[in-house]
Design a protein around this nucleic acid. Structure first.
Lengths: 333, 333
DNA sequence: CTGAAAGCGCTAACAC
DNA sequence: GTGTTAGCGCTTTCAG
């Protein structure tokens, strides 16, 4: 790998001049510029963005820190982020986090301006300590899919979403309903599932149909896990007549399990999800929609704004959720 | 942000000693180690991975370069990659490429050992020049979803896949079939679509039912684009009785367009895709399956192997494709 | 065992 | 206009 030194030597100039050519400084004569450029091309020299960032103390990348980035909802958010970032001068780099360790590491990296110019933190919470550090850092950060006091964020009202789900099921005449959600086994501090459950439970209670604790199941946020959880639910002596899953992906797992048992959806079992991902319309899934793609765009725009104008005060945004009734819910038999 | 200097000063030791503590070197007395560690904790000091990489000349990240990373097929591959990488000591960092410019930039970054320890390049081709550079670089690279002469890769036989599609449709009795594929507008050098088309065309020709050129449409690899392309196809005086879409995502766009016209699938129009993504089984889509998740795992394993043993010779792998007949194809009316 | 110093590749301030 | 040089934060000899 050729370095700036090599180029300088070969061109018979100082490294400063090469640097100037590299950065399009006007303080270089045309002839020198041409000569240096010639050597650069010839040597196939590429400046080290790393050394550049270290020297400058800043980089031109936006880092997105996201756990389980292949979940459909995460992908949809990332699509929004990417669509906005690609129109800017920044590069998008995605840091996957799969373990609690990585979460730590990503966060500590966060505050370093030479690593990333700005940060989007998806679905992860931050403790007050971390919030303080982030707020004090020179690297602006915006949280996506999570409300954080004191830092800009884009979030939804999970509690209200859970309530909507309950009210829909209640309105249909269901009294014995279940919940399939997430456990936070990795310790990421996910709360969406719990918040939705809380809203769900409250609305049920208020209607005089309190949620049976044995009908609440949690597991990893995958279709397979939801499938297993549901199979278990359906094996109970008094199975539920409806299931609210905390994501569409999980709702599909629920439906799968029901079909496996020969149950008709929604005839024998009503199923609803949360998110309204791409395929849900196709599959006719009743769900609580949250604006995933839009939330990504918004978060990116907020960050770009912050990057553009360090002093800018950016308000957190709460996005609306909306009930979308399709074909997987109906009155109980 | 505290630096190693700050720590050294506060602990009353040299930076070298701090560095040794950081890296668990045995050449530090226990008392000194304890004192330094104390200061580190107190200051909340985090070493700069950037400076570290620059100094060391190598990093502990695997870089994945992938265009349009939110396509379902890309996500599925990434899932395989991530599942393997997360079990290793490496970090996974994803570089999105959306423009031809970015492609250049990512590639040039590629060969720099201080940026990434290893590389997985998804769906992108490399010209002989680039292959040479990559082969010579100290950073091992494996190509995924593309065959590259002289470098390890994981790929499928697109040509055979296209043939399979044609044979299936032919076997059902279709003679007037269409193709909905990708154009490579961004100039990434994608060839999968063309290769599948070639296989499709040849098989059709061999069966005496040559593909009508007006029934070949290409556009961006999105559902929406495929929808539009198909609408156009169906408006023709002699519409096709079957459509082969180059991806499942696009096949869904085709189906959408057909339904919009009030056409029954497969009664009025047979539709098949390529990939067999997650939801295809759900939707009963007939398709040509390629092992997406597995291909990601394989590529990651190959790279890890290369990283582990620089001398290792890794063979390119061709993965099989397989026809999966479901409910969107049938005999023509 | 530990401190000092050189160097990783680059930018920017400072001379000439 | 252009060369020189001092860092950016870290690791790693090289002395002691």
């Amino acid at each position: 790998m050729a370095t700036i030194q090599d180029v300088a030597r070969a061109a018979g100039v100082g490294v400063g001049t090469v640097s100037r050519v590299l950065n399009g400084s006007p303080l270089v004569s045309d002839t020198t510029r041409a000569r240096v450029q010639g050597v650069i091309d010839e040597l196939g020299y590429r400046p080290s963005s790393l050394a550049r960032a270290l020297s400058l103390g800043r980089s031109a990348t936006v880092a997105v820190i996201v756990p389980h980035f292949t979940r459909p909802s995460a992908v949809e958010r990332l699509r929004g982020l990417a669509d906005v970032i690609k129109e800017s001068d920044y590069d998008l780099v995605l840091f996957d986090v799969e373990t609690s360790d990585q979460r730590e590491q990503r966060f500590s990296m966060a505050a370093q301006a030479d690593r990333a110019a700005g940060l989007v933190i998806v679905s992860l919470s931050a403790d007050p300590d971390e919030v303080g550090r982030l707020a004090g850092a020179s690297v602006p950060a915006v949280f996506l899919d999570r409300h954080v006091e004191g830092l800009p964020d884009v979030h939804i009202d999970d509690h209200a979403g859970g309530r909507m789900a309950a009210e829909h099921l209640l309105g249909l005449g269901h009294r014995r309903v279940a919940f399939v959600g997430d456990d936070d086994e990795a310790g990421f501090g996910f709360t969406s599932s719990d918040d939705r459950l809380a809203g769900y439970r409250e609305a049920l209670e208020a209607a005089g149909a309190p949620l049976d604790p044995t009908l609440v199941r949690t597991g990893p946020p995958s279709r397979e896990a939801a499938h297993r959880l549901t199979a278990d639910l359906l094996d109970r002596p008094e199975p539920p007549t409806a299931v609210f899953a905390v994501s569409d992906l999980q709702a599909f797992g629920v439906i799968e399990a029901a079909r496996e048992r020969g149950l008709d959806v929604p005839g024998d079992l009503s199923v609803m999800g949360f998110d309204d991902i791409d395929v849900s319309a196709y599959l006719g899934l009743t769900t609580v929609r949250q604006p995933l793609y839009h939330s990504g765009r918004l978060a990116a725009e907020m960050l770009l704004h912050l990057l553009d104008d360090a002093g800018a005060e950016v308000e957190g945004v709460a996005l609306p959720v909306e009930l979308v009734v399709r074909k997987t819910t109906g009155p109980p038999r």
